[in-house]
Design a binder for these strands. Structure first.
Lengths: 329, 329
DNA sequence: CTGTTAGCGCATTCAC
DNA sequence: GTGAATGCGCTAACAG
C-alpha cells in the first residue's frame, strides 16, 4: 500500500504538503493541492491510521463495555452508540464484562494500551477510584457511579413508583416486587420506588420483595415460589422486562391468567416485550436515546467541546400492553 | 505514561533489551531480565500498542461486521467471537452494515486504515471481488460467498427438509413456507429444502411460498394474508425464528390455535424462541459454535497456522417445543 | 548476551 | 506557501 512519501514523490512536493492537504490545515496553494489530490487518487492512497495515531495520540476508537451483549437490553444500546460514533468517524470496540470486576479491569488495561479516545460503560463493578485513575474520558450509561463521572440514566425510582401505582389503580390488592441484584444501583432505585408506594399499605410485608438477578430463569423460579406461597398476590412489578417474562412463564405454568388474575409490569422496554404473548406492559426507558446521548456526550468530552450537562436523567414512559388491564378513569 | 526508554534507563540497559524481555524473544541474561522487570514494575509501564502496531503491522484487532446487532441472531454470534478473540488477545470492532453494500464498503475502508488483522463477516452484500481484494484474512459466517473464501455455515437445506418433513409427519395437510429475502443465500437454500420435500405433493402450489424479509413485522402481515386466503394451511415452516414469531402473532390474532390448528417451525434457535408462549419449535443452528469456530479459523488464518477445513458446514438440530404437536411413531 | 540504529507512516515545528 | 528535520514508541536487524 502506498504511503505518504509515495504520494509526495509523485506529486513532486514534500510529505509536509501532502499532510497539509490531507488534514486541511496550514496554507497550501490551490495548484499544488490539485497535484497532491491527483497523486492521492492515482495511487489510491489512504492514510494509515496507526501511524497517525502514534503521532497525535488519537485513535478515533472508543471502547464499549457491557455486561453481556446477549442480554436483550444491550444490543439496542450498542447499536445507538455505534450509530453516532460512526457519524463522527469513531469506531467501537465491544467488550463483555459479565459484571465481573476482574474482566473489567482486564479491558481497562487493554483499552488503555490501545490508546482508545474514550470509554462507555454500561456496567459498573469497578471501584470509582479506578475509573478516575483511567485518564481517558468515560461516560457511564444506566448505572449511577458517582457525581464526578458523566452519566446518562433513566428515572428509575420515578418509573418504579409509576408502575406500582398503576398496578394498584387497576385494582390489584397485593402487589409484589421482583427486584434486581443488590449490587446494581438501578435495581436498588427501582425497589425503593416500589417501597415508596406500598410502604403504608396494611398488606405490605417485606416478603413481597423477592430477589432476582435480572434474568428470566431465576425470576421464573422465584415467582413460582411466590405464587405458590402467596396465591393472593395479584400484581407484580418486575425490576426489568426479562424478569417480568420469567414471571409470566411461571403464571402460565400455574395456569394463572394474565392479566385477569395477575397483572405484570416490567421495566426497560426492550423489543422482546412486544414479541411475546400477551405483550408485556412496561416502563420503557429510552434505550436507544440513552446510548446516543451517552455517545454524543463522550464525543464532546473527547473533543473538549463544552458539555451542557454531565448528568443526564431521562424520562421513562409507561407502555400499556397485554399484561395489565385497561384502566378506565 | 512511561515508555520503553524510561524503563531502559531505569534498568540501566538498552531499549532493545527491554523489548526482548517484553516479547520473550532473543536471549537475555536472567539477572538483567530481573532488573528490567523491576523497572517495568516500578514505573508501572505498559507497552504502547499503537507504536508496536506501527512497527510490526499487527494490531491484535479484528473487525466483525453484522447486519444489525439488534437482530436477536447476532448478539450470540458476536459474543462467541468476542469470547474466543479475548482468549487470544484480540479485540473486536463491531460494525452494523444493515445489509447495505455502501456501508460495508465504508467499513472495509475504515477497518483497512486501522490495520485490523482480520475480519469476520456475518453479512455479504459485497461483491466477492472486493472481498478478495481486501488483503486481510476474512472468514464468512452464516453466508456462503464463494468456494475461495473461508466459511462457516449450517446445513440449511438439510434443516429445511427436516422441518418440512416433520410438519408432514405430524399430520399437516398443507404446509406453507415463509421465506427470507431473495438476496440472502441461506434463505434460498432453506426454501429449496422445503421445495424438495413438497414438490411432488398434489396440494403444492408456488403460492404457498410467501416472501418475507427475516423480520417479524412483514412475516406477520404476510401470514395474515396467507391464512385468510388459504385457511386450510395447517403448517408453516418459517425461514427464521423471527418470521416464525410473526406468523405466531398472526395466528394468535386470528384466533387460530397453535399447534392444534396450525403448527409452526422456525429456523435458527435464537434464545428468544424459549421466551415466548408457546415456545417455538425450531431447527437450531449452533449459533455460538458458529461464531467460535469462525473466530478460531480466523485466528489460524492470521497467525498462519494450518487450517484443516476452510469450509465448515455445521449440523443443525430440531428442537421440539410448543408450536408443534408431539409425534408418536 | 547486549547495545546501536534504522525504520514503521505521519504530524508538526521551524526555517526559508 | 513549502520543505527539511524531528519525534511518536516500539521492533528488528546488525554489530559487537
Amino acid at each position: 500500500m502506498a504511503n505518504i512519501r509515495d504520494v509526495s514523490k509523485l506529486a513532486g512536493v514534500s510529505v509536509a504538503t501532502v499532510s497539509r492537504v490531507l488534514n486541511q490545515n496550514g496554507y497550501v496553494h490551490p495548484d499544488t493541492e490539485q497535484k497532491v489530490l491527483k497523486a492521492i487518487n492515482e495511487l489510491n492512497y489512504i492514510p494509515n491510521f496507526v501511524a497517525r495515531s502514534l503521532s497525535n495520540k488519537k485513535t478515533k476508537t472508543i471502547g464499549l463495555i457491557v455486561p453481556d451483549i446477549t442480554n436483550p437490553f444491550f444490543p439496542e444500546l450498542a447499536r445507538a452508540v455505534e450509530d453516532v460514533m460512526k457519524i463522527y468517524g469513531y469506531t467501537v470496540i465491544l467488550c463483555n464484562s459479565d459484571e465481573d470486576e476482574e474482566k473489567e479491569k482486564h479491558y481497562f488495561q487493554i483499552l488503555k494500551q490501545k490508546y482508545i479516545d474514550g470509554l462507555i460503560l454500561a456496567t459498573a463493578s469497578m471501584p470509582i477510584s479506578d475509573m478516575q485513575a483511567f485518564d481517558v474520558p468515560i461516560v457511564v450509561i444506566d448505572r449511577i457511579v458517582s457525581q464526578g463521572i458523566p452519566t446518562v440514566v433513566a428515572k428509575n425510582k420515578e418509573g418504579a413508583r409509576l408502575a406500582t401505582r398503576l398496578l394498584l389503580k387497576q385494582g390489584c390488592k397485593k402487589v409484589a416486587h421482583l427486584r434486581g441484584p443488590e449490587s446494581v444501583i438501578n435495581a436498588r432505585e427501582r425497589c425503593e420506588g416500589y417501597v415508596d408506594v406500598v410502604r403504608e399499605k396494611e398488606w405490605f410485608h417485606p416478603n413481597l420483595i423477592i430477589q432476582g438477578n435480572y434474568e428470566i430463569k431465576k425470576a421464573f423460579h422465584e415467582t413460582m415460589k411466590l405464587l405458590t406461597e402467596q396465591p393472593d398476590v395479584d400484581g407484580i412489578f418486575a425490576g426489568n422486562d426479562l424478569m417480568a417474562i420469567g414471571a409470566m412463564k411461571a403464571a402460565q405454568q400455574l395456569k394463572i391468567r394474565i392479566p385477569d388474575e395477575l397483572a405484570i409490569i416490567g421495566f426497560d422496554g426492550i423489543t422482546l416485550g412486544e414479541m411475546i404473548f400477551p405483550e408485556l406492559s412496561t416502563v420503557a426507558q429510552p434505550i436507544y436515546d440513552m446510548g446516543a446521548i451517552g455517545a454524543r456526550m463522550l464525543i464532546k468530552l473527547i473533543e473538549n467541546s463544552p458539555v451542557d450537562k454531565l448528568y443526564q436523567q431521562l424520562d421513562v414512559q409507561f407502555i400499556e400492553r397485554g399484561t395489565t388491564r385497561k384502566v378506565c378513569d
